[in-house]
Structure formats: C-alpha cells, structure tokens
C-alpha cells in the first residue's frame, strides 16, 4: 500500500482527531476574540486562564475521585463537575486578571503597549505560580475514573472514542450557548454595543466597566472548560497553555479577530489543517507547528481581515 493511499484511508479518523483538536482551539479562541471585540486588545494571559481551568478542575476531580473506582451515573456527574469547576476557575482567574492587570491601566488611560506588557507579565506570573504550587512535570494525568479511549461507535473505519465525543459535544453546546448569549440577551447587546462604540454605549446607560469585566468572565469560563477537556485527554502542566494559546490566537485571527463565529470556524479549520496536512507522507508531524502559521499567512494574504472579517469590533 502506498503512503498516499494510506493517507486517504486514514482520512476519516484524522478528521475526527482534527475536530477534537479544533474544538479546543475554538473555545480558547473565543476568549481572545471577545476581549478584542470590546477592548481592541490581545489578552496574552488568556492561555494561562486555560491552564488555570485545567488545574482547577484537576483538583476538584481528584478530590471527588481520589483512588476510588467510578461507575454508573457518577461518571457523567464527575465529568460535569470537571467542566463546571474548570469553567469556574477560568472565570475567576479571568475576572481577577481583568481587575489587576487591565482595569487599573484602563483607569489611568495607559497606552496600548502597557496592556500588552502587563498581559505578558501576568502570563509569566500565572504559569510560574502553577509550576510552584503543583509541580513542573509535563504530564500530571487526571485520575482515570473512566476509560477515555472507550470506543463508542465507528464511522466507516474511523473509531470515535468517548473523550472525543465529550470534547466536541461540550464545545458545540458552549458555542451555541455563547452565540445565543451574545445575540439574544441584554448582556450580549451590551457587549456588542461596547464593541461597536464604547462612548456612545456609555451615554445609552451601559456600564462599560461591568460589561468588560463580564466579557472577560465569559471568555475565561470557556477557556477554563477547555482546560478541563484538554487536561483529561492529555494531562495538565504549568506550561500547557502556551502552544494551544498561540494556536488559538492564530485561529482567532484566521476567522477574523473580534468575530465570534469567525473564532469558532478558525479553530476548527486550524485543527483540521494541522492533523490532515501533517499526516501527508511528504510533510510529516515535525512540521505540525509550522502548518498553523503557514495556513494563517496564506488566508490573510487573500482575506486580510480573516475569513469572516472583523465584525464585532471596530476596525483596528
């Protein structure tokens, strides 16, 4: 069998793996894009919010499961606890981050560059804090309270495992929820108004500080939940945020930074591109990290504002 036939044969399985990878990127990318939408600011500490979600849920799940063997209804309940605790930790850290690293700067009308440095400082601080509190091993595995690789069903010759369904399923649910939240609720209208024109929104009676803070919390919750899913699948570590964070940022730009649906699509495209292109016999997995950015550059050449354009925010 030639290697290219092999690639075709592997295609369905790789698409599923890419979907899993892409869902995580999308969830993180949403945080970048939401914050960019309201503040025209790249929150470079967002990858550490993702990491914090991983550790937060790790502690909770470890506390619940310990060395016990889980069965029956306890398994989905624990997964739910994991998602919620991850989201809660992510939201709390994002809220704190906004209060400490951004709000003070915003109040004093600091230049954009100061926010960037502040974000990088906060990012280093958080990842080293996690390294100090826990340890610096690259793979603290979650307790195996369920067989994450349990095969649920097959599509053609492609196996679909439990963890893949959990990751893709919860990502889809959260994305629909977010889409509704932004487009249908009062809070969502506030976020869109601040993104559109903050001074006018303030005149219309919207509390800008609160809206910004809530935007951080929403983005943080999504990243925190993604941290739980990523952690369950691949383990948690204090440096786990960096690579997915950079890729998710690329995904947000790819879809059109500031555009929520763009971030979702960008993440999914990047996930697929990485897996499928790296699997090509003449490319190879060692090009994995290059692929994301080649795809990004190629798409930006054709569409400088990303696939769906910068809709939510003003043109930067």
């Amino acid at each position: 069998m030639s290697q290219s036939e092999n690639w075709v044969q592997q295609l369905p399985q790789n698409i599923i793996i890419g979907l899993e990878q892409g869902s995580v990127y999308s969830l993180i990318a949403l945080g970048y894009t939401l914050v960019y939408g309201v503040l025209q600011l790249i929150n470079f500490a967002h990858s550490e919010v993702f990491m914090a979600g991983g550790f937060g849920s790790y502690l909770v799940v470890n506390g619940i499961v310990g060395h016990r063997h889980m069965t029956g209804v306890m398994v989905p309940l624990t997964v739910l606890c994991g998602v919620l605790s991850g989201a809660l930790t992510g939201a709390a850290i994002a809220w704190l981050l906004e209060k400490v690293a951004y709000k003070t700067l915003r109040r004093s009308g600091a230049p954009k560059l100061a926010f960037l440095i502040s974000a990088i400082g906060a990012s280093l601080f958080l990842s080293n804090l996690a390294g100090k509190l826990f340890n610096r091993l690259p793979n603290n595995a979650f307790p195996t309270y369920f067989d994450i690789n349990h095969q649920l069903f097959k599509i053609g010759n492609a196996k679909v495992t439990l963890i893949e369904v959990i990751i893709v399923g919860s990502a889809v649910v959260m994305m629909i929820f977010l889409d509704r939240l932004v487009n249908r609720t009062k809070l969502g209208r506030g976020i869109r108004a601040v993104a559109e024109d903050a001074p006018t929104a303030a005149l219309m009676g919207i509390d800008i500080d609160k809206t910004i803070s809530r935007t951080f919390v929403i983005g943080g919750a999504l990243a925190g939940a993604a941290g739980f899913m990523f952690g369950t699948a691949f383990g948690v570590s204090n440096l786990m945020g960096f690579t997915p964070g950079v890729k998710a940022f690329a995904a947000a730009v790819l879809g059109g930074i500031g555009n929520i649906r763009g971030a979702m699509i960008g993440g999914l495209i990047l996930g697929q591109a990485e897996v499928l292109i790296a699997a090509l016999p003449f490319v190879g997995a060692q090009w994995n990290d290059v692929i994301s950015f080649v795809v990004l550059v190629l798409i930006l050449l054709v569409r400088p504002t990303g696939i769906l354009g910068e809709r939510l925010g003003r043109a930067a």
């Binding site: 690259p138 897996v275 699997a279 997995a285 060692q286 994995n288």
Partner: peptide, 13 residues
C-alpha cells in the same frame, strides 16, 4: 518521522 517533544501534547495524530 519526528514530533517536537517540547511543544506537543496531543499525540493522537
């Protein structure tokens, strides 16, 4: 083949 050990977490592909 090669996979960068410093950045890779997802070995599924």
């Amino acid at each position: 083949s090669g996979v960068d050990g410093t950045t890779t977490k997802n070995y599924n592909p």
